[in-house]
């Protein structure tokens, strides 16, 4: 549950650090060639940070991390035209995960991640429908949901592994 300890400066620093981490992961992922040449299909490893932030920070703080990450990532990748898809997907994903957090506990964080990834794909498709002005792209949704399910499981399990390590670290720090 949200940790409310620490001064505002400490929190700000942590948020900035998480955003920077997410961006680094994003840039590294950029170097991985597309596995499937379908727009919208990707691993989305940077969402390890999003999932973590949803469970450890307030919704508003997770929102800030995600927003800054998406904006800067689109600048880094030089693909500003993809911004609207990332934004609509990201926001729906975040909103969904903030709700799902109430049902799914941290030990099953990968489930939230899968749901988040699928919501991200749904958001993307609606943005694509709006941008392209045709419902044709909606046919993509099943493919995206399958790929999102797989990618979400992967990022979710990664997040779970990170959290487990961090918990172990906290214990050894206290000793």
């Amino acid at each position: 549950m949200p940790q409310r300890k620490g001064s505002p400066t400490q929190r700000l620093t942590k948020l900035a650090l998480l955003t920077a981490l997410a961006l680094i992961i994003f840039v590294v992922e950029l170097q991985i060639p597309d596995i499937v040449p379908i727009p919208g299909v990707k691993l989305g490893l940077a969402n390890i940070i999003t999932v973590y932030a949803v469970y450890h920070y307030k919704a508003g703080e997770a929102f800030m991390i995600l927003l800054v990450r998406i904006l800067l990532a689109s600048v880094y990748s030089g693909n500003i035209s993809a911004l609207i898809f990332s934004l609509s997907g990201g926001m729906l994903c975040l909103a969904g995960m903030v709700c799902i957090k109430r049902i799914i506990d941290e030990d099953h964080i990968w489930v939230s991640s899968v749901a988040g990834a699928m919501l991200h794909n749904i958001g993307q498709i609606f943005a694509a429908v709006a941008v392209m002005g045709t419902w044709t792209v909606f046919g993509y949704l099943p493919f995206l949901l399958v790929s999102g399910g797989i990618a979400g499981t992967f990022t979710g399990l990664s997040a779970q592994a990170v959290i487990k390590k961090m918990k172990g670290k906290e214990k050894t720090d206290r000793q």
Binding site: I100, I103, I104, D105, H108, V111, V114, A115, M118, G139, L141, P142, F143, L145, V146, G149
Partner: peptide
């Protein structure tokens, strides 16, 4: 945490995945 709700959520998510996989295969 409510375990029943959690299980239900997992089932719903799994169902969405299976359905979309089936639709993809059909397409």
């Amino acid at each position: 945490m409510d375990n029943k709700k959690q299980k239900l959520a997992i089932i719903i998510i799994a169902a969405v995945f299976v359905i979309s996989a089936a639709v993809s295969a059909y397409m």
